[in-house]
Amino acid sequence: MGRTRTVGLPGWLYVPALVGAVFVLLPLVAIITKVDWANFGTLITSESSKDALLLSLRTSAATTVLCVLLGVPMALVLARTTFPGQNVLRSLVLLPLVLPPVVGGLALLYTFGRKGLLGHALEVMDIRIAFSTMAVVLAQTFVALPFLVVSLEGALRTAGQRYEVVAAGLGAGPTTVFRRVTLPLVLPGLLAGMVLSFARALGEFGATITFAGSLQGVTRTLPLEIYLQREVDPDAAVALALLLVVVAVVVIALARPDRREP
């Protein structure tokens, strides 16, 4: 079998690439060397660990769904329409990417908290968000949403509108065009955005601890459990950290979009 020959990379480029790879991988190796393998099973199957893992998976999945429901329309509006202030809006939507998560948590508290902007309205409707699993999902969505919006908007811009124009010419209304043309064409970008959102939600810590609190089985996700266990049992914390890494890697591997060219 012959191999296609491509334009080679400059040789020096491999050095920083390798350094970068080592920089990312070495800390993972360091974690693995710290794991107390003899007790690994017991450490990660304790009641609190299982609760934390399940809660993390549940809330991250819910967050991903919420990100899709809110983020897909946002990305479409940003990519397919023009209106005054659009660039400002885009920057603001991306704000959670640079905002320290703890600040995000505070912002959510000032919005949905008992004394927050919407606090009174929520109280009237007898909805209590703080200290609930809902609060965890909101905190995770706040930090994860930009990832979905950014990757989907990029995919939409790359895909362009030519196919949509053709579809409209064939008599397809906007909804049909969206369902049968736009969405399938950007599916890889959407999947990538979903994976990123899920991964970000899985690792979310700061906004959650600030906004949602920490209670086993309700709001104490895996990262919070790791942080807590570190106080008393570093071995358990390391074991859980490895578990978190493995879960993230598995999710990313499973959902990795097929890179076939259209």
């Binding site: 124009v165 053709v166 579809a167 409209a168 010419g169 064939l170 008599g171 397809a172 209304g173 906007p174 065009v177």
Partner: peptide, 10 residues
């Protein structure tokens, strides 16, 4: 009329 309601194919 929007494109999809014109009956015009390009």
């Amino acid at each position: 009329l929007p494109p999809h309601r014109r009956g015009v194919a390009l």
